[in-house]
Write a protein that binds this DNA or RNA. Structure first.
Lengths: 183, 183
DNA sequence: CTTTGTGAACTTCTTCACAGCT
DNA sequence: AGCTGTGAAGAAGTTCACAAAG
């Protein structure tokens, strides 16, 4: 939009937050603004990318090549923000040895070897809910440190060196039901 | 597992929470347990379904029949928890008038009429990020009160009678990057 | 004059701990 | 004895309000 700097108020407006919140959040990581001027937009983007660890590329494994896995791996935004799928793990012997979207498909038993060789630290898990607990354990045993879980409700407590993020569309639509019922 | 009742501690264990948290959360809505016994499992499930508004069925519209929309509409869990897709809205004239998975595809201009006739209150929006702002406005104008947004980063402030829930896989994987960088 | 960065005040959320019921 | 429901205490998060800087 041609602007060089943005004030905390303008950032709040654009992100549905408040000016004080924007300033406090940023102050936790450093001083990125200039008094009287606001925040230089390019500098701020670069600072936030640094904070989030997006100033590098990450190799990602997909575990489970069902419908959800297939649609996610074709999703271009991952590449744009620095995440590259480099391996797919499956149980189905039909698929193993082939590739999907140019990415090789391995048997899930090969996970420890491939993840070490390729230094993969992040996995996107999209397997049937029944097998997710077992798969989480195998993924962690293969050296993965961050799991993005799309397998539905997850009650798996990761060890302290690992992190699980859950994306659960069913739970979100249930919360809409709650709001519409009560308000 | 053959058990009739569960204590707050057992529920906490199973949900990665704490006993006090489980009791406080439930106490906000009523008294569902028996002192000395814990919570009757069937009764508790029924109570929670009532709280969440899941003791009925909801009609849902899908807006945008791209890859994500197609994979979500085939997702059986929605039906199991009480949500039925009854209409698809699209811009592409190629698809309009046809159906997908047995659900009729309408032009997006027909949304106000169809949503009123069918009393649809919830929409799942899966359109390209560029058009999401405009689509949100049109969806709300059609009488929708709850939006589940899968179109990426959303900075749309809904009016007070409506609710938006965002599901953003890209944002979640970025937060994994943050944790792996700092811990 | 504008806007940041930040202590202090305030609000919300979580945990503690125990009276009271089964 | 076992476990809930809940005030009170403690922790975490948000907003206020203003000194300091451009």
């Amino acid at each position: 939009m041609g602007k060089v700097a943005a004030s905390s108020g303008e950032i709040a407006e654009a992100t549905v937050s408040t000016a004080a919140q924007v300033r406090k959040d940023l102050s936790y990581f450093g001083s990125f603004g200039k008094k009287g001027q606001g925040y230089n937009i390019d500098e701020l983007i670069e600072a936030i990318e640094g904070i989030l660890g997006l100033d590098r590329r990450w190799k990602v494994a997909l575990v489970g090549l069902g419908k959800i896995g297939q649609s996610l791996i074709q999703f271009k935004e991952f590449g744009q923000i620095g995440f590259d799928f480099v391996a797919i793990f499956e149980k189905d012997p039909e698929k193993i040895g082939k590739s999907f979207n140019g990415i090789p498909i391995y048997h899930i038993d090969e996970m420890p070897r491939v993840c070490e060789e390729e230094t993969i630290l992040i996995a996107l898990v999209a397997v049937p809910a029944e097998s997710s607990e077992e798969v989480f354990q195998r993924v962690l045993d293969a050296g993965i440190r961050g799991i993005l879980n799309l397998s539905g409700r997850c009650c798996f407590k990761p060890p302290p060196h690992a992190f699980i993020k859950n994306v659960n569309v069913a739970a979100e639509i249930e919360s809409l039901s709650y709001y519409l019922t009560h308000f």
